[in-house]
Amino acid sequence: MAIKIEILFPEFCNLFGDMSNMLYLQRCLPQGEFVKTPFSEEPLFLRERPSLVYLGPMTERTQEKVIEKLRPYKERLWQLIEEGVCFLFTGNALEVLGEYIETEEGKRLPALALFQLHAKRDMMHRHNSTFLGRLGQEEVMGFKSQFTMAFAPPDYHPFLEVVKGVGLHEKCKTEGIRYKNFVGTYLLGPVLILNPCLTKLLLTQMGLPQAELAFASEIESAYRQRLKDFHAKT
């Protein structure tokens, strides 16, 4: 099976070192084809069925443009998600697929409404935190740095259970969305490098459970050391 990974709008949606996730996947999948779709072009997922579609965090103005850019392809996106195509949306990329984003003035910017989730912006209070969560038997670590908090109904499909830190919002005990093979999380930056278990999950969902992790021993040592610090210091 040919592996084709689509990276959406990498020229803009890369605020926190996020492209490293794809560079790392490339190291794990040297035979894979990584397609960068610039904002000015039509996404690959319209014509093809990629193994993975990735979208990283973006500025608020870019977010509004990305929503309008993807709006005509809303049905296609939902079809692919329902069919089990892998998606990874990190940072505020998840909000693009929610119902709306509420600005500080109370204005609601309609998003694609694929998921029952909405976000509220507060531009003068940036939320920064460390996060430790559970994914089945595994522990997932990461960092949040964002202007929004997100809200979802109680029966939504969460990605992680909060162990330490903040979920979708301050009182929420779950983080992100996982529906079929779609994973959306507010964790930003090199989430796949920070969490080898997440990379494994992604590769398995892509039908490549036997794929070897690049720099496996170093990435495991870094993970263990960091996990120890997350337990002790956060």
Binding site: G17, N128, T130, F143, L188, G189, P190, K233
Partner: peptide, 13 residues
């Protein structure tokens, strides 16, 4: 000393 640093910036460097 007191937390775990967000090392994401390494990958912008």
């Amino acid at each position: 000393a007191h937390s775990v640093e967000n090392i994401s910036w390494y990958y912008d460097t």
